[in-house]
């Protein structure tokens, strides 16, 4: 469905951010991309969607393919037309537009207004809370509602692939559960494919089918979600558990030694 092959991204012509990243996202699955701050997760998503260029970033090596078509080097608005949507980190709703106007803007690429109306109804079906807020300025929605709107807005273009960037950011655990539940439902009902970037590894590995771990612009670990959940390193560094499975104590840290193994 979506694949990155040895992708290298350079910002500003000199700063090497991604150093040969290869990721494959299978049709109808949820794939998660884990990693610490600054590992290059968001950059990976931006390299796929093509908004990288507006930040003076550039894919200098490798290829990004969507359904067998090269999309690196394409403009973001053209990539959208091929059936890819991105939900940005920190929600980024159009604050001065109402909820419904946000959705209309999300369906920009679809010429038939009747279809857009239908999709808006579909979105309201998944997120009833948005219907209640439809005429409100979206900047004043709560964080959870904004996240729902951001996902709903991405659905408006009827994409086949959605890139989800940290949907749990700054939300209460209960809301996060709710949103993740809806995402799972969306994947099943709407035949979506999702690439999910998360800091919350526990949650991400619960919902995902497959996972990648990134560090310093490289993929350092890959496997099925179940396998990653059982991986000792993942447990220690991302799930906060030690080998026995109990909570980790700070007494036996020294984990930098193990961490080093992934680099080089």
């Amino acid at each position: 469905m979506l694949s990155l092959n040895n992708v290298e991204v350079v910002y500003d012509g000199v700063i090497l951010v991604l150093k040969g990243v290869s990721i494959t996202v299978g049709q109808g699955t949820i794939t998660t991309l884990l990693g610490a701050n600054g590992a290059g997760k968001t950059t990976t998503l931006k390299a796929i969607s093509g908004v990288l260029r507006s930040e003076r970033g550039e894919v200098t090596k490798g290829a990004v393919e969507l359904n067998g078509r090269r999309i690196d080097g394409m403009q973001a608005f053209d990539v959208t037309r091929l059936g890819l949507a991105q939900v940005f980190e920190g929600r980024r709703v159009f604050e001065h537009l109402t909820t419904e106007e946000n959705l209309v803007a999300g369906g920009h690429i679809r010429p038939d207004m009747r279809e857009v109306r239908e999709t808006i109804e579909l979105v309201y079906g998944y997120f009833p809370r948005l219907r209640e807020r439809r005429y409100q300025q979206s900047g004043y929605l709560s964080g959870g509602e904004q996240q729902m709107l951001a996902i709903g807005r991405a659905l408006m273009s009827r994409p086949k692939v959605i890139l989800l960037d940290e949907p749990s950011l700054g939300l209460a655990p209960m809301l996060v559960e709710e949103i993740f539940g809806i995402v799972r439902k969306l994947v099943q009902n709407e035949n979506l494919t999702v690439l999910l970037v998360e800091q919350n590894a526990t949650l991400a590995l619960e919902i995902a089918d497959h996972g990648y771990v990134m560090e310093n612009g490289r993929i350092v670990l890959e496997g099925s979600a179940a396998k990653l959940r059982d991986n000792a390193d993942i447990k220690e560094f991302y799930l906060g558990l030690n080998e026995v499975g109990s909570r980790k104590s700070y007494r036996d840290v020294k984990h930098y030694k193990r961490r080093k193994r992934w680099l080089s």
């Binding site: 973001a76 159009f94 807005r153």
Partner: peptide, 11 residues
């Protein structure tokens, strides 16, 4: 409101 996001919406 937001150029980058608008671009990702296909605008």
């Amino acid at each position: 409101d937001n150029q980058q996001v608008a671009m990702a919406m296909g605008i």
